[in-house]
Every structure is written in structure tokens, then in C-alpha cells.
Design a protein around this nucleic acid. Structure first.
Lengths: 247, 247
DNA sequence: CAAGCGGGTTGACGTGGATCAAACGCCCCA
DNA sequence: TGGGGCGTTTGATCCACGTCAACCCGCTTG
């Protein structure tokens, strides 16, 4: 951890404002002109802090807003009646949560903070109203939803067609890319989720995840120490995907 | 096959028109007022026939339109470079295809007709323009996308957390519900896809699918004859889901 | 009418990942 | 500073599903 310069906190500084936000490039405003982005400032209904392990929303909650992660990270999951959990995604800063609620006006999954986090609240009625006026916002929002669908297809590919080590390699590459996009190291990062949560996401048991990590370490692909990951051979990981066991 | 009455074919009769379409309740216009639906007639850019095994679109094709299935059915899939296929969905009449393309302006999966089919072409630029004017259309479209995301979560649950027989039971129940919604029998229907395609969708090998069908038949849950399915005990199938092997 | 073929079923066997179990290490808190 | 608990690692064993292979059936084609 690094000491950071003390910055005076002012009301201005705390104001919710897409136009001032350094996550623009990762978030809903991505690709919009400065002028259009200024209009978004009116869109955000406020912020909300969510402590580690607290829910942002639960299955069945009335749907009113979507959320943009400002700091921290979340998981979304679905529960089967007998208690089995399926993690459907992990969300980092700039990513949008809550799209599942639009279809039935109620949330269909749970969103839980993996660490102390905070989010921008975007009342959905506002978003629809404004996106009828601001074409670029409309288009961006459609892209965000479509991207989620494409991501889900990738997960289906993972779950339906890959073996354990391929799944974990794909997961690590994906995490690395997302950390990179946020200005963090591509090679060294700290996972916020447990082995069990990774396993649930990847359709594996936690022991299998742990063993795959160990195997990667033995093969010099990564260095693991609990949640801390250092990627030593990204090419090797990618090779695991573009197929074939050891060719 | 049944002889059908000869109906005179006129230009009127062939005209694309949501307001005249009997799929309204299942398709994009669902929930919209008659007045609003009339405006959709301008939206549809035409129709397209797709023969069995032909592609409606392929990975990489430029994205310009989404499609509503009028007759027939489709599968969508994603291919891994080593040839592994993951079927990401099966689409029936009234369902929307092509939403994956919005995110990158190019399609990210393949859509293939399972039988001779035809679709309405909905140019996406038109849809965005019109949905800036017609609030109910905008909202419906958002619901359609969200529903797709929720469906995908269900598939993740299937693939990540269920065993083979649970997956197939969920698949059969889902098909039954969708046939029912279309006015067909809930208990007796004809599958358009092969065992291999079902297996790919469910993350199983075709032999496993075949064996699970046979097991269901032995247990009096269904009667199978190739692609023809008759459900004899829908409660029994549902019981397989709400859990626990034989309790 | 025969031959070929794609799709489906069934059996025998192999294996990747699940399950069960034990021990370890980090971290929180008294 | 020491104890307790959660998360993780690792080993031994099991089993659900994959793999390989034979065969069947209904359709198409010459």
C-alpha cells in the first residue's frame, strides 16, 4: 500500500458527475462527446456505498435503477432452491450492474460486494428519458447491453466446451485484461473473490480451482500466493486456450 | 402433414406488417398499444427466407439489422478455433436474433436455420430512430435485451451447476413452455435439432443426451421416438429440477 | 432395389473432476 | 500475543460423464 497525497475534500469534489469522472472510458459514457457527457451529470441519481459482503440488490427486489461501479467490485449470482449457487459474473469499476431487472421490473439475481465498494445510481426511468433525447447515449446503452450478451456467450463457451485448466486460463487472461484497462498491472494483481466463487463461476469445485492454480505454478505460468497472482507467462496461458492439451 | 386450404396470394397479404402479424404477443410489439404497433409497420425492412442449414448471419458479418423469426427455427453458436462448437441458443417464432452484433457492429456468433424458415428484417438504425420517438417501443426493446441476459444466466446455471438429467429436464420443460406459448401442445412436440446440438447447448456429449432420453423413457417421464417427444409426467420432470436425486 | 449415410441407440471401458478428509497458513480479535 | 476460524492446499478415492465402438433405422440417390 502506498501513502497518497492528502487532497482537500469539498462538496464540489464529491458531486456526482460523469463529466468529471475518470472512469468515462470504461463506463456508460464511453465514446460519447464531451458535450453529450455533460448531459449525463443530470442522469446519475446519487451514490451508494456497499460494504464487503453486503447486497447491492437481491433476487425479487423491485427494479428501479441500474448501477455503475465506481470503486470496489461485485459478484452477481443466482441460487437454486437446494442452495446451489451459480456466480454469473464479477464486476469491476466502470461496469454496469442491474440490467437483469429490466425484463420483469424485478431483479433476477443477487449483487454482492466483494470488498467495500461504491456505485453510481442511475434511475432507469431517467436513462430511458434521456436516451430518447441523446442519440449517443441511447446507442451506448444498447452497446452495453449487447456487450453483456456477448460476454454471457463467452461464459457459455467456457462452461459448455472447455476443460478445467482452459477455463481457469481464460479467467486469468480476462482478469488481466480488465486490470490493464483500469491502469493496473497486467501481470500482477489481487483477486477479490474466493476459490469457491471462482469455482462457481467456472463450473468447478474449489478444490479443482486450487489444483489448477498449483499446476499452473508448477509449470511456471503463474506465481500464486493465496489471492495474489503474478502472471509469468501470459503466452503460455493463451496457448492453453488455442487449444489442444500439450501440443 | 395436412392439406391446407388454398388462400389467394395478394400483394396485401404478403406485406410486412406487425399490426397484422399473429406473433405480436411473442415478438417485439408485445405489450404495446395498437396505435403504437401501427408505427412499427414502417420499421420492418422486409423479409428473408432462410433454408434449412443455411446461415442467417455468421461471425464477423457486419451488423446492420436484427431479425424476428416469423416461421421456422434457428440455432446460434460460437466456434472455438479447434472446431469445438458451443450452441448458445435455439430461437423459435417471435424471438429476436442478432442482438450480439450491436456491441461491436459485427456479429459475434452464427445463426443457422434448423428448418426452412423466414424472418423479418429490422434495420437497427431504424429501430433506434423510432424508439427515440415511441416510448413503448424503446421500453419493449430494452425488455427484450434484458430477457436475453436473464435467459443467459439460466443457461449458466444449467451448465455450471446441474447434472446431466437435470439439464435435459430443464431443456424439455423450457421447450414445452415455448411450444405452449405458440399454441402448440405442451405435451407433444417435434424437436428440430439433433442430439449433438442439444448436447452442445447443454454441455453434454450426444451419447449422454441419448442415454438421458432413454432413462426418462424407462421412468415413464416421456415417450421418445427420434425427434418426436411426448411428455407423460411433467411433474416428474420438474421434480428432477427442484432437486436432489431421488428423495 | 441396393447401397450409402446421417442420425440415433446402446454397451464396455476410461478418466477428469467431484468428493471426502486432513492439515496448513493467514488474519482477525480478545 | 495467542487462539480460533475461514480460506486454501493437498492427498486418496469415487463416479458421472466422456470415449470408443458396434449396430440400427429411416432417407436419399443411382
Amino acid at each position: 500500500m502506498q501513502q497518497r497525497a492528502v487532497v482537500p475534500i469539498t462538496v464540489e469534489g464529491l458531486k456526482t458527475a460523469c463529466s468529471q469522472c475518470n472512469l468515462q472510458e470504461l463506463c456508460l459514457p464511453f465514446g460519447m462527446s464531451d458535450g453529450d457527457i455533460d448531459q449525463l451529470d443530470a442522469l446519475v441519481g446519487g451514490r451508494r456505498k456497499v460494504k464487503r459482503h453486503q447486497h447491492l440488490y437481491r433476487v425479487g427486489d423491485a427494479f428501479e435503477s441500474i448501477y455503475a461501479v465506481r470503486t470496489g467490485s461485485f459478484k452477481t449470482d443466482v441460487l437454486l432452491e437446494d442452495g446451489r449457487e451459480q456466480v454469473t459474473g464479477f464486476q469491476m469499476s466502470g461496469e454496469i450492474l442491474g440490467l437483469d431487472g429490466i425484463s420483469t421490473d424485478a431483479h433476477t439475481c443477487n449483487a454482492v460486494a466483494l470488498e467495500d465498494s461504491d456505485v453510481c445510481i442511475i434511475p432507469f426511468a431517467n436513462l430511458e428519458t434521456l436516451s430518447r433525447e441523446v442519440e449517443s447515449l441511447q446507442h451506448q446503452f444498447h452497446k452495453v447491453m449487447s456487450r453483456e450478451i456477448v460476454r454471457d456467450h463467452g461464459v457459455m463457451m467456457l462452461l459448455g466446451s472447455m476443460r478445467a485448466e482452459e477455463r481457469l486460463a481464460a479467467f486469468l487472461i480476462n482478469m488481466s485484461q480488465r486490470f490493464t484497462a483500469r491502469g493496473f498491472s497486467a501481470a500482477e494483481f489481487h483477486l477479490r473473490m474466493t476459490r469457491e466463487e471462482i469455482g462457481s463461476y467456472l463450473g468447478l469445485k474449489l478444490e479443482t480451482v486450487s489444483r489448477a492454480f498449483s499446476r499452473f505454478q508448477e509449470n511456471g505460468l503463474i506465481a500464486v500466493q493465496q489471492k495474489h497472482i503474478r502472471i509469468r507467462d501470459i503466452g503460455g496461458l493463451k496457448a492453453l486456450l488455442s487449444h489442444l492439451p500439450s501440443v
